[in-house]
Computed example of a mutant assay.
Amino acid sequence: MPSAIKDIRVTPMEHGSKSNVDFGATVHGIDLNEFTDSDFEIIHEALHKHKMLVFKEQPKMLAPQRQYDLTRRFDPDETTGGFAHGVDPFLTSHNDVDIYGLPNRPAIPVQPQVHILGRGELPDNHYQFPPGFKVKGIDHHYFHLPPHIPSEEREAGKSRFYQWHFDGSLYAIPPPRVGCLLAVRTPKGPDVKVQWDDGTGTEMAIAPGATAMVAGSRALELLTPELRDIAYNSKIEYAPHCFEWMSTAHSTRLGHSIETEGLEKPLDKLKPWTEEKVCTYPMVWKNPMTGEDSLQVHGQGALKLFLKSSPDGEETIIDDLREVRAFMHKLMRPVLEPSNIYAHRHEEQDVILWYNRALWHSITEFPESYGPRIMHQCNVAASDHPVAARQLPA
């Protein structure tokens, strides 16, 4: 008998007249646990067009093995299949099963490229984890510049963006092409109010535990013509082992840069590194399927800037961290306004897939009384490093 024809629908999201967000689509009719090659062709085209897909009405939780299979297919030239942040350290063991990762990012033993993020206790019998295993949540008290949000205000629903970034190690390993996130458990409670805490008084109501996203294309569009010329022709050198390097410093309260207090871990005190593995990336990356350009920068990891305003222009090197961060602020701050931000309201069993080379994202905090947030995330090291987009003549 012929196979049944699937009713697959890819529907662009509507964000409302007050929003400048122009990305995102919902997908119905594809069971990601059973997706076919023809299904993937639809997913591949839709993701590059819409930059973020939300898969609804999944019959059951996406298995880690299938989540990995879906994610890795976006890069057929990648052969190692490695986690985008490198080899995980040993964490614990249970019933003779070794578990690797970090307390806030344990890897699932049956598919170690899939990690568990969020906060709180895992469901019972969850993929070989010991009973009562709790994922350590992020807490801006340990990373953001004081003053912090008092605990009673956090419990009442005040929140922050933790870190605006694209996924990647920023050292040695090429950043993933896509990210994939499965909602296993979501916090239950009223919306929270994210505060910028940068002196502007800006705030935004979002779902608790939402993943916030902005488009690099919108960030590029909002730059002045002069800054846009520089972005197209300039590069950023990222610190070696940059997450270790910044671990002793403070993030800005908005989560887009690091405060310059001289608290970074000295480069000669980091775990061993070599110059040839340091990542220096263009500021503007091109979507290979649509040709769209995106400003893709990581403000917290930036160590040095190589600035030019035209392909043949004179290059200015900036290695003073205060100046580096002031410039990164000029690039990143314009897009970080409520009208440009999409905060995804996760629903259990839904899967979101995003194009990591065109969007920035940030996790957000929520009251502990709302319960656990348990997510499965997969990202795989790419086969290539980003290359510069070329600016067309005006």
Score class of each variant (00 low, 15 high):
Gln296Ile: 06
Met289Asn: 11
Ile258Ser: 02
His298Ala: 09
Met328Gln: 14
Pro272Phe: 02
Ile258Pro: 11
Ser257Glu: 07
Met289Gln: 15
Lys271Trp: 01
Leu270Ser: 11
Glu323Tyr: 06
Gly299Met: 02
Glu259Thr: 13
Thr280Ser: 10
Glu259Asn: 12
Pro311Glu: 01
Gly291Arg: 02
Ser294His: 15
Glu259Pro: 07
Val278Ser: 08
Glu261Tyr: 13
Phe306Val: 06
Ala326Trp: 12
Val297Ile: 15
Thr316Tyr: 01
Gln300Cys: 09
Lys304Asn: 03
Leu331Ile: 00
Val284Gly: 14
Lys277Leu: 05
Gln296Gly: 01
Ser309Arg: 14
Met289Pro: 01
Glu315Asp: 02
Ser257His: 10
Met332Cys: 04
Val278Asn: 08
Tyr281His: 15
Asp268Ser: 08
Pro266Lys: 09
Val297Asn: 06
Met289Leu: 09
His329Glu: 10
His298Met: 08
Leu307Thr: 11
Phe306Asn: 11
Leu321Gly: 04
Glu292Leu: 05
His329Phe: 12
Ile318Glu: 08
Lys265Met: 09
Leu307Lys: 12
Asp268Trp: 10
Gly313Phe: 07
His298Ile: 03
Arg322Gln: 12
Gly313Glu: 02
Met289Ile: 12
Lys265Pro: 03
Glu259Trp: 08
Lys269Val: 00
Thr280Tyr: 07
Phe327Gln: 11
Lys271Glu: 08
Phe327Thr: 05
Lys269Trp: 01
Met328Ala: 03
Thr290Phe: 03
Leu307Met: 09
Asp320Cys: 05
Asp312Ala: 10
Gly262Leu: 00
Glu264Pro: 03
Leu321Asp: 10
Glu314His: 10
Thr316Gly: 01
Leu321Asn: 11
Gln296Leu: 15
Trp273Gly: 02
Ile318Trp: 06
Phe306Glu: 03
Glu276Val: 06
Asp319Pro: 00
Ala302Leu: 04
Gly291Met: 01
Ile258Thr: 11
Phe306Gly: 14
Glu314Tyr: 08
Gly313Asn: 04
Leu303Tyr: 13
Gln300Pro: 07
Arg322Pro: 00
Lys271Tyr: 04
Thr260Gly: 01
Ile318Thr: 06
Trp273Asn: 12
Thr280Val: 13
Ala302Asp: 04
Glu315Arg: 01
Cys279His: 11
Asp312Ile: 03
His329Thr: 06
Lys304Ser: 03
Asp293Met: 02
Asp268Thr: 12
Pro266Gln: 06
Leu305Arg: 14
Asp312Trp: 03
Gln296Lys: 14
Leu307His: 14
Thr280Gly: 05
Cys279Lys: 10
Asp320Asn: 15
Ser257Met: 07
Thr274Pro: 02
Gly262Met: 05
Leu267Arg: 15
Arg322Glu: 10
Pro311Phe: 00
Glu259Ala: 10
